[in-house]
Design a binder for these strands. Sequence first.
DNA 1: TGTAAAAATGTAAACGTTTTCAGTATAGTC
DNA 2: GACTATACTGAAAACGTTTACATTTTTACA
Lengths: 350, 350
Amino acid sequence: MAVQKSVSLKEVADKAGVSIATVSRVINSKTVVKGETELRVQKVIRQLGYRPNRVAQRLRTTKGASKLIGLLIPDIRNPFYVDIIRGIEQYAYARNFAVIIGNFSQDEERQKFYIETLKSESVDAFIVAPFPGMNEYVKELSEEGYAVVCIDRGLPGVDLDVVKVDNFQGAFDAVEHLIRAGHTRIGHITGNRQIPTTMERVAGYEAAYARYGLAIDRDIIVGRDSDYQSGVDLAAHLLGLPGPPTALFTSNNLLTLGALETIHSRGLKIPEQVAIVGFDDMDWAMSLNPPLTAVRQSGFEIGRIAIELLHQRIADPARPFVSIVLKTELIVRNSCGYMLRGGYEVHKDS
Amino acid sequence: MAVQKSVSLKEVADKAGVSIATVSRVINSKTVVKGETELRVQKVIRQLGYRPNRVAQRLRTTKGASKLIGLLIPDIRNPFYVDIIRGIEQYAYARNFAVIIGNFSQDEERQKFYIETLKSESVDAFIVAPFPGMNEYVKELSEEGYAVVCIDRGLPGVDLDVVKVDNFQGAFDAVEHLIRAGHTRIGHITGNRQIPTTMERVAGYEAAYARYGLAIDRDIIVGRDSDYQSGVDLAAHLLGLPGPPTALFTSNNLLTLGALETIHSRGLKIPEQVAIVGFDDMDWAMSLNPPLTAVRQSGFEIGRIAIELLHQRIADPARPFVSIVLKTELIVRNSCGYMLRGGYEVHKDS
DNA sequence: TGTAAAAATGTAAACGTTTTCAGTATAGTC
DNA sequence: GACTATACTGAAAACGTTTACATTTTTACA
């Protein structure tokens, strides 16, 4: 019941009456093979259903041609990362690349494990969404000569290719939208504050406040982790305050969903009693009641660009590092209430 | 800038003054090595930070010891599959297994591609959620000697290990719940009808109707694909009917979300104007407004059991095939309306 | 037709392991 | 001290590729 051995180069060579070198050449077509021979070999390959063994290929070529890349993702439950995966996969599929996903579930130990595993699988490149505390490891990767692209956030003080969005502007737009809808007391549920992305969004929040001459109340900017439960708990905290905010700006997908749970469980009406804008749009944001106003960042696009960058770097390791910053888009739906100062209508009857 | 060569067995052997065979033995500890030698080698391993190269290991061992399994998933956007991935990963992580995920996005061509890729990566086992039209390929896999576990649904006429849930009962419970809440005209949005799972759920729907002596109206059992857009469109169709259903039973996650979009966009009140129960619970079902009543199947548990089964089969290829059917659980929240016939209260003030 | 150059093909090493088999050191026994 | 059994270790093959180098065949041209 052992796995059936699959067809090897040698078998093809024997049947075609040539050496394995020739068969290899036919397949990789780097060197010329006589037309007649080539045809004969091709035929045998088809007959036998030969497929190169990727393991042997990788063992042989230490270069950068292993056509395997490692992907390190902090939390696959977050649809944003799922979009990134899809963006990467699509490109990879088209180029016969394979991708190994390491979902480390926000666990340092596990991130280390995956890095080691992927290294020993001879990936020739990494796409990483860095997680606090792991900067050193990612830096090492790059120093060891792996092609590395960071997504979602860069590494402070380290030169690398980065693909991210303009978090500052995205947050600014969201908060500005709320302010224009008449809110002056906007609670902000931030993500993990060790993540630069989080802080950029906080900065955007503050800038919008400053722009409209509003005073910032640090008591309604709260953060813990970047997960669902934090959203639930922190929303409860904010809404339980003596002077609760009239609107919430949540810093990611999961926090938004968590906050929503709290809002609904308290029977609060959106947007009449609390307005909400979330960072990260979701495929099914329209399915929420009311449909959610959100800052869209295209994970799919981020993934696609990341793997293209990787591809480029493998081809040309000396290319200067680039940092690509994508624009976000505010998708206005119905969770923000009526505008008070004009020019920015968002409401329609539910 | 090529990737730094990592430490090999040979380097360790040289530095420790032994042969590579001995080092290998120290690592795998199948055979005895003299205590003194072992210690010396261990020390060098630590000093040099040696890590076995998994690629070379896999090339060498054609057995079933490659510690790599392939996972074939139809649609990573569906949170149900994400849960499965997490269940598998957790176990894999604990046992030093690696998992390669092939998300084929409901595309036959791509599923084939991934099967081939995973084979040529020398995985020694597959976990597959079979997709219509691909039964042959999966069957082949098993015949070729790979350990294969099917999740979510089995393969008609093929003996394999299967982990799934009791779809019939799950659907029955959902529909019964709706009936007891007073609904007699329940629209059913099914998934792809080529998927056995879909048909089992339809059967559960019909059984509940029969159990309560209700006549089935086939016009309100509609299905196309198992995706979001189908949910949107089919809900629109049902709710646009001359005598529209008063309740909807949706056959999966994505269909539910799609239907919800339609319901909200039409401004219909849940549960007063349309009730809804979905198959598949979601982490954030509480965040919907109103919180969704749903049939929960634990993807995490399915994944965990699947990989355990795989582990067993690798250890003992002769073990008889088993089919594990997990129970579902109806999670009653607020999307179904008031009960009319007593004994089954679900409502609380929103 | 003979020869040199070009084209096509073959040989063998290498990638980093595991494992069989053979060999050597150690201990035990008389 | 010699001999055997046992414990340990090393040499080498094998896994399926790619590729540098060597060799053979073909072509071109006199």
